[in-house]
Amino acid sequence: MSQDHSLNPETMPHDPAKATTEGKHKFFGLWFFLGGETVLFACFFGTFIALRNSTAGGPTSQELFGLELVFLMTILLLTSSLTSVYAIYHMKNNDFKKMQLWFGITALLGIGFLACELYEFAHYITEYGFTFRSSAFGSSFYTLVGFHGGHVVFGLSWLIALMVRNAKRGLNLYNAPKYNTFSLYWHFIDVVWVFIFTVVYLMGMVS
């Protein structure tokens, strides 16, 4: 088909992610989706802030949280944001192998983040008996941080599916927009985490 040919031109356009109509649609669609996600997370944040002192006699945020692990998680996720920027840089230079490599590093960092989070949750549950059902604070904490973690899981599955699917096909105008929308989504996960470590952990440690 003429279609397939147009997806593998001799030279890639400067910004392959937005060169096709479908690419433009995906670009706008994901941005608008993030606008909605902003409100979604704002509602979780609002609920958490309203309930963060409602510990019902259970452990408080000062007793639970430690700075070291959260700092490590923050660095992991921030770095994964940079590595995905590198990947997109190589996409614009039409260097598929390097792009896959940097996205691979992004995925590893994401997995590291998730592992820390799982360890953290397990620690709270076994050491402090602090669960989803302990108090309104517990419910809102696990819901907010858990929804963020769920976003990370979804993002990782998305990325791995993309990388496996395209490993043999190489970069073309059909899949470049998909990588690009993923990277936007991944940055947004990082944005949410910045507020989580500030509002949940750091503000939970001060007062």
Binding site: F28, W31, F32, L34, G35, G36, E37, T38, V39, F41, A42, C43, F45, G46, T47, I49, A50
Partner: peptide
Amino acid sequence: EVPSSLIFGGIWVAVLTILTMT
């Protein structure tokens, strides 16, 4: 331009929501 105006729209609603909840 359009994406950023919608992101700011989302931020506006987000700010109102969080202000309310606090």
